[in-house]
């Protein structure tokens, strides 16, 4: 169910458990090439990114290699057209679209769909 609001502000929303969840009403808070963390209703966390062309991504904030909730603080990059973030702790890279770890086939984190409403 989507609630219709008549506000004109921009909203960044993640698709979580069957619904769009607004996480940020000021996209300028997210420096292109960097991320921010968002708290989800079930207590888990998402890492939300924007790339230089204004495309948005979101994956789980937990770094599966260390257990710390820090992926949002990693450096973003792209390789062969795939946007990724490198974990700030031990530097493994994760595909921002799928959550797949690019340095260890067997590891992946959850990825979320993102949309920006203006």
């Amino acid at each position: 169910m989507t609630v219709l609001t008549l506000e004109t502000t921009t909203q960044v929303e993640l698709y979580v458990d069957g619904d769009w969840l607004p996480v940020c009403d000021d996209p300028s808070r997210v420096t292109p090439g960097r991320g921010v963390a968002a708290l989800l209703p079930d207590g888990s966390q998402a890492a939300v990114f924007q790339d230089r062309s204004g495309r948005w991504y979101a994956i789980d904030n937990h770094d599966p290699f260390t257990g710390a909730a820090v992926l949002s603080r990693g450096l973003m990059g792209s390789a062969d057209g795939t946007a990724f973030v490198a974990s700030p702790l031990l530097k493994q890279r994760f595909d921002l679209t799928t959550g797949q770890c690019l340095d260890d086939e067997g590891v992946s984190v959850r990825a979320y769909a993102v949309r920006v409403l203006t």
């Binding site: 963390a37 968002a38 257990g67």
Partner: peptide, 29 residues
């Protein structure tokens, strides 16, 4: 958190050690 700036990250936890703190970490990564 961008959507809850005041809420401390619940995964950052500490336990006592020699009268100070140290990170509480799960045994495994």
């Amino acid at each position: 958190f961008v959507n809850a700036p005041e809420v401390p990250d619940p995964t950052v936890r500490f336990v006592p050690e020699r009268n100070q703190i140290k990170p509480e970490l799960p045994l495994l990564n």
